[in-house]
Nucleic acid binder design. Structure first.
Lengths: 196, 196
DNA sequence: TTGCATAGTTACAGACCGGTAACACCCTAG
DNA sequence: CTAGGGTGTTACCGGTCTGTAACTATGCAA
């Protein structure tokens, strides 16, 4: 898929999807609204009829990303209903797959790196959405019967976050190759300790 | 320290130092050369006499950062001469201190997030410099008599990298608070396995 | 005193940025 | 058939960006 996403759907959806793709590939400040609308097969006026500013478009893109991530969690539950430990391992596999998907890190983290104004609207939603994801992982670990669920969840999440930026800086052949091994080792090690 | 770094040194040094500071705080694309030269107490022509482009200035800033990081490693050796394990613990403490220093992550990682063109000159030096740092940590772990030195070094480095972006996204009260605990636990655990 | 390298000043080029105004077009609902 | 909302088109605004030209001022060294 190049930048030209011009399926026939409603302009707002095309703009949102195209912006998500282009922000991901080229960064937020690396893409202008003209380029987005052109790739989406529409024009600037239509964009500004649906989004009051580029900043609002950015926020909506981040929310759309989070929604997609939420669907991922639901897929784990659907695939291994009730088996929380299996879902945790599925999370590890999915995370590893994302590392090899492309060399770009987490869109939220990248956005946070670019948008430095402390009160930028995007910063609030990033914080909020990241907090949700953290909580989901903590809950999963706890429900999987792991003792220090918060500590394991936070460790896994830091490892994953670190692996994503590592891929972005040194490439997929760097430290991130060991991610699955690290994560699985941690889970084993935490399961060995006293469970709830 | 605000953005105005106007000590009386040679213009090139002032520009480099000011650019480093401003790139760190506001991101690379968030700072123009005009703003840099003004904060450095000089002017655009002088900048372009010393650096052939903004891209070259960026690269020089990253190299300066790496040099500062190199000095940090030398400080460990100076403080605990020959005691590699103590140096490893010093690295953990230093890393934790950097987490609480300010809410901005690693300049190299941030630059990689912003500069998405695959053949951007900065991407080469980022890769090169990150590789050097990785190797230093691996060597330190190995010389500290740890068995799976590469695995420990890579795990610690992913944890640290992840903690830095976590601070940038959810703040210093997020998962990164557990960094020292995680790192120390890992070192203990790896020392328990067969050593070199 | 002369000569030269370094640095400062002003102005500008050319491109791109986010955002808006005014107006013409279509499609569909009534 | 008609009215109106969503869409497309063109042109524009003011601002900022990197990078350069032409010229002046400064300080040091022979």
């Amino acid at each position: 898929m190049t930048d030209g996403v011009v399926e026939r759907s409603r302009p707002r959806d095309r703009i949102l999807e195209t912006a998500r793709d282009m922000f991901h590939k080229h960064g937020i400040k690396g893409v202008g609204v003209d380029a987005i609308t052109e790739a989406a097969g529409t024009n600037k006026m239509t964009l500004y009829r649906h989004f009051e500013s580029k900043d609002e478009l950015i926020v909506e893109c981040l929310r759309a990303n989070a929604a997609k991530a939420g669907a991922m969690w639901d897929a784990f539950e659907a695939e291994f209903p009730g088996d929380k430990l299996a879902q945790l391992h599925a999370w590890v596999r999915k995370a590893a797959a994302m590392l090899n998907a492309d060399g770009r890190g987490c869109d939220m983290a990248n956005a946070a790196a670019e948008l430095t104004e402390p009160d930028h609207p995007a910063r609030l939603v990033i914080r909020e959405l990241k907090e949700v994801q953290r909580q989901r992982l903590v809950t999963l670990c706890r429900d999987a019967g792991i003792g220090q669920a918060e500590l394991l969840a936070d460790t896994l999440s830091l490892l994953f976050e670190g692996a994503r930026v590592s891929v972005q800086t040194v490439g997929a052949e760097g430290p991130s190759t060991q991610f699955v091994r690290m994560a699985e080792g941690l889970i084993v090690s935490f399961r060995g300790t006293a469970a709830g």
